[in-house]
């Protein structure tokens, strides 16, 4: 499955109301570690159909970043049943991200 780009407009529907757990990847184009993490997230999204992966561009969605207290990227936040259930800041290897799920 692909990584869906989310905005403030569809965040509730795609993330908070999702049946599956969601991993939201807060990132930006200028952020080197985010570019490193991106292929890892895409690989996981292809492998794990039990989890939904979404991407939030913090430059365009600064309200979402503020709402979820994101002040460093890359930042992965796990949502279960509309609630934050874990997060990880900075570049992480695939094995660590799997542990988040």
């Amino acid at each position: 499955m692909n990584v869906i780009e989310v905005t403030k407009a569809n965040f509730e529907a795609e993330v908070l109301k999702s049946d599956k757990p969601v991993i939201a990847d807060f990132n930006a184009d200028w952020c080197g570690p985010c570019q490193m993490l991106k292929p890892v997230i895409e690989e996981l999204a292809a492998e794990r159909t039990d989890v939904k992966f979404v991407s939030v561009n913090v430059d365009e969605q600064n309200e979402l970043a503020y709402e979820y207290n994101v002040s460093s990227i890359p930042c992965l936040i796990v949502f279960r049943g509309g609630k934050e259930a874990g997060r990880s800041v900075g570049m992480k290897p695939k094995s660590e991200i799997v542990k988040l799920i």
């Binding site: 952020c31 570690p33 913090v58 430059d59 002040s71 460093s72 990227i73 900075g90």
Partner: peptide, 17 residues
């Protein structure tokens, strides 16, 4: 608090402030 206000890289995270 790393990533929730505490940072070690101004050029990486300055934009949030």
């Amino acid at each position: 608090l790393i990533g929730r206000g505490v940072s070690y890289c101004a050029t990486c995270d300055g934009a949030f402030f």
